[in-house]
């Protein structure tokens, strides 16, 4: 699926208490969001530097295509740039960005379904998939991981799947997930509870992850 391995783990994930609120926002980040909302292009570019990796990964987890993830991420930031002046509360910037990204991913799949109708009749092949598969074959481990994860996710309902991904792959807090999905926190927790309960029983995936642990 891709050719290089970047294990930057500065990210987020483990530092946040499971199920807890999102961490307090960095005052510098708040200032940047305010400046960007006021039309400061440099401030918005700084926000891109801060969130591009996260949004790219978020999209990649859902498309498993580097090319598509690049394209969608570009679109997400352009949409965000055009709409950033509507942000009133800087704390809402991240959930807002994720919401744009999630909508972009959903649009991507809608268009893909539409295209597949035509390719079904024309016999065209989906472009860009084969090379990535070829590269993925060089990294069997990754392919295996995405395979296990994909298999597990098919056992979840759409809501459980999205909540689970936002929580444990994208590392958002419950409140942020609620904002992204436009649901209340108790609904998010209910879906998350069901998803984690299914995850707990996923012995093969958990076994695979244990092999990976240092």
């Amino acid at each position: 699926m891709q050719d290089t391995l970047h294990g930057d783990s500065q990210a987020t994930g483990s530092g946040q208490e499971e199920g807890g609120e999102s961490p307090a926002m960095d005052p510098r980040l708040i200032a940047e969001v305010r400046q960007a909302a006021a039309g400061d292009r440099a401030a918005f570019e700084s926000l891109i530097g801060r969130y591009q990796g996260e949004i790219f990964r978020m999209v990649y987890y859902r498309t498993l295509s580097r090319m598509d993830a690049e394209d969608i991420t570009q679109d997400v930031f352009i949409k965000a740039f055009r709409g950033v002046e509507t942000i009133r509360d800087p704390v809402m910037f991240k959930p807002w960005l994720y919401r744009i990204a999630l909508n972009a991913v959903n649009d991507f799949y809608r268009k893909k379904r539409l295209r597949s109708i035509f390719t079904l009749f024309s016999g065209d092949r989906e472009e860009g998939q084969a090379p990535e598969e070829d590269r993925a074959s060089e990294r069997l481990e990754r392919k295996e991981f995405w395979g296990w994860l994909g298999k597990f996710l098919t056992r979840l309902s759409a809501a459980e799947k999205e909540v689970f991904r936002l929580k444990y792959l994208d590392d958002l807090g419950i409140r942020e997930i609620a904002e992204v999905l436009g649901k209340n926190e108790s609904t998010v927790k209910t879906h998350l509870y069901r998803a984690v309960d299914k995850f707990r029983c996923e012995k093969e995936l958990c076994g695979f992850l244990k092999e990976e642990k240092p």
């Binding site: 699926m1 891709q2 783990s9 580097r66 991420t73 995850f199």
Partner: peptide
């Protein structure tokens, strides 16, 4: 669950 998140990040490319 944390291992899952770490592994996903490791298995995703960088932009």
């Amino acid at each position: 669950l944390r291992a899952l998140g770490r592994k996903a990040r490791d298995c995703a490319p960088e932009p």
